[in-house]
Design a protein around this nucleic acid. Structure first.
Length: 507
RNA sequence: CGGGAUGUAGCGCAGUCCGGUUAGCGCGCUCGGUUCGGGACCGAGAAGUCGGAGGUUCAAAUCCUCUCAUCCCGACCA
C-alpha cells in the first residue's frame, strides 16, 4: 500500500472489525487487558473519557433531583435470594466471597481460611442491598420519592470478555428510586431514559432509539425494561443504557413499605437505571475510523494538540514561545459547558509522527506551528473529522473563533454521520426469506459486515423470538416507543401483529 | 463446560516435526549523531531461568508425562 493510502489502524474495519476495535483501543492507549482474567486496566486517556461521562451525567442526575450515596460491595447471599427472577438471572455470573483469612500453608504459600457463616456476593447490581437500606429509610409517603444514585464498580463473571463492552469488573452508575405510586415510578423510569438519550445524542454524538425490551430480554426481576439502542459501524446494535420499572417486586422482596395518605401501609414502587463503561465501547465503535479513535469534543479528554515544528535551536525557541502564546489564548476557555484542554507536544519526534499520534488518540483539533506560521502570525489547523493531510492556515486573530466553530462542527458531523449510517442500514422487511437473507453474510467462513436494523412485525410470542435467535443470532432489540400502530403479520410465524419491532444482531 | 489452537526479550514472531557451540529476527526501548511542514536514517547498546514441575539423554526450547495459563469457535450476558 502506498504511504498516502496507508491507514493508521490495521486491519481496517472492512477487513476485520473485531480486530480493528482492539487496535483502536491499543493505539489510542485507552485500556489494556490485565493479568486478572476478564478484567481491564483503564489507562489515563480512557479513564478521562469516563470521568467526563460521569461529570456530565452527574449534573443531569442532580438536576432531576437525585443525590449520590454509596452502598456495600458485598451482598449477603440471603438478600440476593429474596427476588426469585433476580436470582435466576444473575446466579450464573456471581463472584462469591466465602473466606475471610489467609494462612501459611507450610510450603511457602498461603491457604484460605476462616470460612464465613454466610457467603457474600460481590455485587453484580445493587437492588437488594440498597433495598435493605431503603426499607429503613422509607416509612411514610412523606419520605417519597426517594431518589438515589450510586457510582460504583460491579462484577459479573462473564465467560468471554471484550474491552469496555464486556468485562468481569466494570464501572457504572446505578440509580435507585422509590415512589408512592405506579404512575410516579413509571414516570421516573421514562424520564431517566430520556436523560440517557439526550446525553448520548448531545455529548457522545450517538443517535439512539428508545424502546421497551421484550419479556425475554428484560432485566431479571423488572416489570418493564426500557433501553436506548445504538447502531455500531458493523451494523450491530449496542444497548447503551437501561431503565427499569420494577413495580413492587423489589419492594416486596426488601420489605419497602410506607404508610400512605389514607393511613394504610402499602408496598412502594421502585425503579433502577444504569449506564456503564460500555458507553466508551459505543463511543469507539460509533465514530472511529481506519485512522483510529475519533472523539466528539464534548466528551474528549483534551481538545487541541499543539504540534511545534522546528529544525534548529533558534527556530525551537521562537516556535515554542509562539506555541505558549496560543496555549495561553485557550487557558480557561470554554466550548459551551466544556472546558477546553490543550496538549503541547514538543517531544523530539518528527512532525508527522506526532500528528499521527494525536490522530490515533482522536483529539478533535490539531494545530501545527512552524517557522513559516510564526512569520505569518498564523497556524495550520486540522480537524479529526476531515482527511489527515487536510489543513487550513488561520490567522492568530481568528484562531479562537475558528477553533470554537470547528469543535461545534466536529460534534455535529459525528452525530450526523452516525445518524446517516443508521438510516442507510435500517430497513422495513415483511418477507421471511428477505429477512433471513438480510441477516446472512455472503461469506459464511469469514462473514463480511452485513445486516443492520430490520423493522419487522412480530406477533408477541416468545417462541418466534427464540426461533429467530437460534437461526440467525438476531434478537429483538426493542419495541420502539415511536412505532406506529400498523396491521401486519409476524416475520416468523405469519400471525397477526399490530406494530413493528427492531431486529438486529447485537453486542 | 464441550471442540480447536498457542505459550520463546516490552510487543509480534522464527527455531520444535528430525535433540548438538554462546537461542535468533522485526518493532519498541536506551545512548550518540544527522533529521523534523505528512508515519526518518546511521551507529552503538540493554533486555530471555524458552509458561511451570517431573522424566529420558553425554546433551532438551526441541522427545515423554503431568500441570498452569491464554486465545479462537459454541452455550451465557450491560
Amino acid at each position: 500500500m502506498s504511504k498516502q493510502n496507508r491507514t493508521a489502524i490495521e486491519p481496517t474495519r472492512e477487513q476485520n472489525y473485531a480486530e480493528w476495535y482492539q487496535q483502536v483501543i491499543k493505539n489510542a492507549d485507552l485500556a489494556e487487558n490485565s493479568d486478572v482474567r476478564g478484567c481491564m486496566v483503564i489507562k489515563p486517556w480512557g479513564y478521562a473519557i469516563w470521568e467526563n461521562i460521569q461529570r456530565t451525567l452527574d449534573v443531569m442526575f442532580r438536576e432531576t433531583g437525585h443525590r449520590n450515596a454509596y452502598f456495600p460491595l458485598f451482598i449477603p447471599k440471603s438478600y440476593f435470594e429474596k427476588e426469585a427472577e433476580h436470582v435466576e438471572g444473575f446466579a450464573k455470573e456471581c463472584a462469591v466471597v466465602t473466606h475471610s483469612r489467609l494462612e501459611d500453608n507450610g510450603e511457602g504459600g498461603l491457604k484460605v481460611a476462616g470460612e464465613l457463616t454466610e457467603p457474600l456476593i460481590v455485587r453484580p447490581t445493587s437492588e437488594t442491598i440498597i433495598g435493605a437500606s431503603f426499607a429503613k429509610w422509607v416509612n411514610s409517603y412523606r419520605d417519597l420519592p426517594l431518589l438515589i444514585n450510586q457510582w460504583a464498580n460491579i462484577v459479573r463473571w462473564e465467560m468471554r470478555t471484550r474491552l469496555f463492552l464486556r468485562t468481569a469488573e466494570f464501572l457504572w452508575q446505578e440509580g435507585h428510586t422509590v415512589h408512592e405510586s405506579s404512575e410516579d415510578a413509571m414516570e421516573e423510569t421514562r424520564k431517566m431514559l430520556d436523560v440517557y438519550a439526550k446525553f448520548a445524542a448531545e455529548y457522545l454524538a450517538i443517535p439512539v432509539i428508545q424502546g421497551e425490551k421484550t419479556e425475554g430480554e428484560k432485566f431479571p426481576g423488572a416489570v418493564n425494561t426500557y433501553c436506548i439502542e445504538a447502531m455500531m459501524q458493523d451494523r450491530k446494535a449496542l444497548q447503551a443504557g437501561t431503565s427499569h420499572f420494577l413495580g413492587q417486586n423489589f419492594a416486596k422482596a426488601s420489605n419497602i413499605k410506607f404508610q400512605g395518605r389514607n393511613g394504610e401501609f402499602e408496598y412502594a414502587w421502585t425503579t433502577s437505571w444504569g449506564v456503564s463503561t460500555r458507553l466508551i465501547g459505543a463511543l469507539i465503535m460509533a465514530h472511529s475510523d481506519d485512522n483510529g479513535l475519533a472523539l466528539p469534543p464534548k466528551i474528549a479528554p483534551s481538545h487541541i494538540a499543539l504540534i511545534p515544528i522546528f529544525r534548529n535551536e533558534e527556530e525551537r525557541v521562537s516556535v515554542l514561545e509562539y506555541c505558549k502564546k496560543i496555549r495561553q489564548e485557550f487557558a480557561g476557555a470554554m466550548f459551551e459547558d466544556i472546558r477546553i484542554y490543550t496538549e503541547l507536544d514538543d517531544r523530539d519526534l518528527t512532525g508527522s509522527e506526532r500528528n499521527w499520534y494525536w490522530i490515533k488518540k482522536g483529539i478533535p483539533i490539531r494545530i501545527e506551528i512552524g517557522p513559516r506560521d510564526v512569520a505569518a502570525n498564523a497556524v495550520m489547523i486540522s480537524r479529526r473529522d476531515k482527511e489527515p493531510r487536510e489543513k487550513e492556515s488561520v490567522h492568530l486573530d481568528n484562531i479562537k473563533a475558528y477553533v470554537l466553530s470547528s469543535l461545534r462542527g466536529i460534534q455535529d458531523s459525528y452525530y450526523q454521520r452516525a445518524l446517516d449510517f443508521r438510516q442507510e442500514h435500517t430497513v422495513k422487511i415483511d418477507d421471511n426469506k428477505k429477512f433471513y437473507k438480510f441477516f446472512s453474510p455472503k461469506n459464511e467462513a469469514q462473514p463480511e459486515i452485513h445486516g443492520g436494523f430490520a423493522h419487522s412485525h412480530w406477533c408477541g410470542d416468545t417462541a418466534c423470538e427464540e426461533k429467530i435467535k437460534d437461526d440467525l443470532k438476531v434478537t429483538i432489540r426493542c419495541i420502539p416507543f415511536d412505532a406506529e400502530p400498523e396491521e401486519g403479520s409476524c416475520i416468523c410465524c405469519g400471525k397477526a401483529s399490530d406494530k413493528r419491532v427492531i431486529f438486529a444482531k447485537s453486542y
